[in-house]
Design a protein around this nucleic acid. Structure first.
Length: 592
RNA sequence: UGCCUGGUGGUGUAAUGGUAGCACAGCAGAUUCUGACUCUGCUUGUCUAGGUUCGAGUCCUAGCCGGGCAGCCA
């Protein structure tokens, strides 16, 4: 694949400005470390792609590292299956671009204890180069140090065990415009808190009966500072940590400390976490940690038009069988986009090109379609394929005769190569490329008209053959063989050029014509988005392909000339029974 | 009517007190063995009102409009 254009110039945004300043003042002597922290409870989608490109992008621009860390602190919602899928998606997206910045550790590695300024400290280093059996980072690997930190918080009088039920905890919290009130357990002695918390861990109490809470301020205007929960009791096994725990930390407590343990410097997340930032800082500061602290910075989510983005809504599409699964080529999941034929470089260019801000808007999906076309125009080999075949007989070519023609593989290449395709007496052309009663400015084949068969010669229409019902069964034409390349009349001009395949030499294939899933720009704003599903988001046709396409492999992209970009379906395409997915049509200014 | 946060063409994004630029979309044309690509031209913008300043998208004040926050989810 050729280099992506435009040249890879580092983007600029408010977060990179901050990082640049920190680098300039050497605020983090250990280097810049970011992280991408998915919860393994669903598939990655377009929205995540922006976060991935931001975090890995910054890491590569500053010769730093970006840790893939599973934020797996809630075992009841998570599953190992997602760990595998998410890891594969990320590796696909950053391949050849930022894979050298991907922080992974040797399997089983836990944070190394270090001593800094006389205090306990941890640092999970990435796996050494060349290490085999590496795996991503897991917040659940830090359950023990997190527990020790909690003990420390209790000793410092900054956390307490609360016996309020979940319902009462809600009541005591108050409302955004009404202050909460102190838990009756708020002023428990340190020794009692220590004892109770240790017994929580030992499994002495049922789920929901007690929790560990930060002691901050029940009257804070920010509800997340009203003595937030740090630990809850859950007597369930964990997909990664096994069954050694029955208390699990909550996001706000685990995230900032996981960042700290890994030496993360810039913790980037989306806007809904702005109100959590004071808590992120509070936990770190309350512990008096020695190393430079990580900080959280927030940016807006990427919301493309004509698509749904929330996991919940995506799940409904799967459950209601609107799509075939999470990797349906119409889904905005990375798995779906990949199966659709959208390449990682194109995806990166799209999400990087839309920039990073705190303004929450909708990105026109046409921008993505544009970069996909642009990318594929440069890289995809051209092939001839007829989606809806119409038989055409070249009466001056004898049955069995073949007329070899040279077809260009990619005119965008500096030194384009060619392949040979055979013109035969019987060929298929596109139904659309013939009109018995042509509309104005119709450049294709019409009664009394001439048209060029791409890479072959100009033909003229002699006769339209119909069956008794009046349906066209074949077109009979004369091939002007002296208009082939290299022949005396090759320079002859006609207004239209159409694609074709040889009838005897072409192969049959199923082709899936995908289009936008929704008919409105903001399906998520609709009362019922099932009512705005595009009925033509998938049309399946039996097509005829030029022979070279029979050997196509998943992961390869082709331009079917005059039609669009296509890729073999990674799931259903089989040798001898090819299935192609349409990634995107060619731009069409001739409004059909 | 609590707190936080944001508003630049149709969309996204630059301009960090000094000519409002770029991309996509749209429109018109050129070119073309892909009605693609490429090329040329065009339309459209600083939420409002005051203020500071020689000069304001940028700074100040007020207003208007939008988004987020009350899981033992992340």
């Amino acid at each position: 694949m050729s280099d992506p254009l435009p040249p890879d110039t580092p983007p600029s945004d408010f977060i990179r400005d901050i990082v640049a300043q920190h680098v300039a003042e050497n605020r983090y002597p250990g280097g810049i470390v970011t992280r991408f922290p998915p919860e393994p409870n669903g598939y990655l989608h377009l929205g995540h792609a922006r976060a991935i490109c931001l975090n890995f992008g910054i890491a590569r621009e500053y010769r730093g590292r970006c840790n893939l860390r599973f934020d797996d602190t809630n075992p009841v919602k998570e599953d190992l299956e997602y760990v595998e899928a998410i890891t594969a998606d990320i590796k696909w997206l950053i391949a050849g671009w930022a894979d050298h910045c991907l922080g992974v550790k040797a399997k089983g590695d836990l944070p190394n204890a270090q001593t800094l300024d006389g205090q306990r400290d941890y640092y999970a280093a990435p796996a050494a180069a060349g290490a085999t059996a590496t795996e991503p980072f897991f917040a659940s690997d830090y359950f023990e140090p997190l527990y020790q930190f909690a003990l420390e918080l209790i000793k410092r009088g900054k956390a307490y065990v609360c016996d309020l039920s979940p319902e009462d905890t809600d009541l005591y919290r108050g409302a955004p415009d009404k202050p909460g009130k102190d838990s009756p357990w708020r002023n428990r002695p340190v020794e009692e808190n220590l004892d109770l918390f240790q017994r929580m861990r030992a499994g002495e109490f049922p789920d929901g009966t007690r929790s560990l809470r930060a002691k901050i301020d029940m009257a804070s205007p920010n509800v997340w500072l009203r003595d937030p929960l740090l630990y809850r009791i859950r007597h369930v096994a964990h997909h990664h940590a096994g069954d050694s725990w029955c208390i699990y930390p909550l996001y706000d407590y685990a995230h900032c400390l996981s960042d700290y343990l890994e030496g993360v410097t810039h913790s980037l997340c989306s806007l809904e976490f702005v109100v959590h930032r004071p808590l992120y800082d509070w936990v770190l500061e309350a512990l008096g940690l020695p190393r430079p602290l990580p900080h959280q910075y927030e940016f807006s989510k990427l919301i493309p038009s004509y698509t749904l983005m929330s996991k919940r809504n995506l799940l409904r599409l799967v459950q209601e069988k609107v799509v075939s699964g999470w990797d349906d080529p119409r889904m905005p999941t990375l798995a779906g986009l990949r199966r659709r034929g959208i390449t990682a470089p194109a995806l990166r260019r799209f999400v990087i090109g839309t920039g990073i801000t705190t303004y929450e808007g909708t990105v026109d999906i046409a921008v993505m379609e544009h970069v996909v076309r642009d990318e594929l125009n440069r890289t995809a080999a051209r092939r001839l394929a007829v989606l809806r075949p119409l038989k055409l007989v070249l009466t001056n070519i004898a049955p069995g005769d073949v007329v070899p023609c040279q077809a260009t593989n990619n005119p965008q290449d500096e030194n384009p190569t060619t392949r040979s395709i055979n013109l035969t007496r019987e060929v298929f052309i596109e139904e659309d490329d013939f009109a018995e009663v042509p509309p104005p400015k119709y450049f294709r084949l019409k009664p009394g008209g001439e048209v060029r068969l791409k890479y072959a010669c100009i033909i003229q229409l002699d006769e339209i053959v119909k069956d008794t019902a009046g349906a066209i069964t074949e077109l009979r034409c004369t091939a002007q063989l002296d208009t082939r390349a290299g022949e005396p009349n090759s320079a002859k001009k006609v207004k239209g050029t159409i694609h074709w395949v040889s009838a005897p030499e072409s192969v049959a294939a199923e082709v899936r014509l995908y289009d936008r899933l929704f008919t409105v720009p903001e399906p998520g704003a609709e009362a019922d988005f099932f009512k705005v599903i595009n009925p033509h988001s998938l049309d399946v046709v039996r097509a005829r392909l030029e022979p070279a396409l029979a050997a196509a492999q998943p992961g390869e992209s082709f331009q079917f000339e005059r039609l669009g970009y296509f890729t073999p379906d990674a799931v259903d395409s089989k040798p001898g029974a090819p299935v192609f997915n349409r990634t995107i049509t060619l731009r069409d200014t001739w409004a059909k």
